[in-house]
């Protein structure tokens, strides 16, 4: 039981982490919180349903097509929801436009696939007997793919030169122009990667849950993960999200009705006692 909770916790944490990484990449690049990120996750789930179940493709093709579709969508999304508002004198306008996008996406999905929850066939069948309980391969698969994505993004942005140049470029447009990198390219690339990550999360978890419009709410847990881990670092977002996944899984021991409440209480406590999160550091504002 304890072990099974651990596996569920870690795999949910992975899902949140994929979303959280995407969110944090956008925050670092353009200082925008994307409130439609959960809806992107949901779209990922529906695309999985569309490619695998409706069109009957095999999992690998479905996976790749989902990523490609979301990357293309990332470009469209960036140019409609963010780009026109990048110089707005009220930064909150971008927040509102992402809220608008979250509504539009939820509704678009409902119009296309209907209001009812859909069942997606498992990507990998079967389960492994483990200490008297069963471990579904689906979870193992999710964790493995999740880890691969996390390692990939972490290395891209924190280790390799490309990523460093990219994040430097978006943070300091003057320096970037000196380097000859058009900002619009780096921001677009960031949105593409970010949306793809969230979509992968949706695609991976589609078989575990029914695919429905409520999947969008998963983003709230990713927000929580980001804050717990420390605003502004990919590492913090990942670790925070996995913690949220584990807290959520184990809270079932104490209460079933208040599971979500516990997660958000933890979030509030962290905010109050360590607002910079686990990996954040305090910065003095420059006058």
């Amino acid at each position: 039981m304890i072990l099974q909770l651990f596996i569920t916790g870690i795999s949910m944490g992975m899902v949140y982490a994929l979303m959280a990484m995407g969110l944090i990449l956008i925050v670092k690049a353009v200082n925008v919180m994307n409130f439609a990120h959960g809806q992107i996750f949901m779209v990922g789930g529906y695309l999985g349903y569309f490619f695998s179940n409706q069109l009957g493709m095999n999992s690998l093709v479905s996976f790749i097509l989902t990523i490609l579709a979301l990357m293309v969508f990332g470009v469209i999304y960036m140019f409609t929801v963010y780009w026109p508002l990048r110089n707005a004198s009220w930064p909150v306008t971008v927040t509102i436009s992402t809220l608008g996008a979250s509504i539009a996406l939820t509704e678009a999905v409902r119009l296309i696939w209907g209001p009812f929850a859909l069942k997606v066939a498992p990507i990998v069948d079967g389960s492994l007997p483990l200490f008297g309980s069963k471990l579904q391969y689906q979870y193992v698969f999710l964790i493995v793919v999740g880890v691969v994505c996390i390692v990939f993004v972490y290395n891209l942005f924190e280790k390799f030169r490309v990523g460093r140049v990219m994040s430097a470029a978006t943070q300091d447009s003057y320096a970037a122009e000196l380097m000859g990198i058009p900002i619009v390219l780096t921001v677009t690339a960031t949105y593409m990667i970010s949306l793809a990550l969230s979509g992968i999360g949706g695609w991976l978890s589609a078989p575990l849950f029914l695919v429905s419009q409520t999947l969008g709410n998963f983003a709230l847990k990713a927000f929580a993960g980001i804050v717990v881990g420390g605003f502004g670092s990919v590492k913090g977002a990942v670790i925070g999200s996995i913690m949220i996944g584990l807290i959520e899984a184990y809270s079932i021991i104490i209460t079933t009705t208040y599971r979500d409440a516990i997660v958000f209480l933890v979030l509030i406590l962290v905010l109050l006692f360590r607002p910079q999160g686990i990996y954040g550091e305090e910065i003095e504002e420059k006058a």
């Binding site: 919180m33 927040t95 804050v227 605003f231 979500d260 409440a261 979030l267 509030i268 905010l271």
Partner: peptide, 28 residues
């Protein structure tokens, strides 16, 4: 007094968490 020690985005998140916790309480 508690939440406004946080600033900007942090406060926005805390207010989301606040509304979510209350929602859970109302519902359960």
């Amino acid at each position: 007094a508690a939440l406004l020690k946080l600033r900007g985005n942090y406060f926005a998140f805390a207010s989301i968490a606040f509304t979510q916790v209350l929602y859970m309480i109302f519902r359960n």
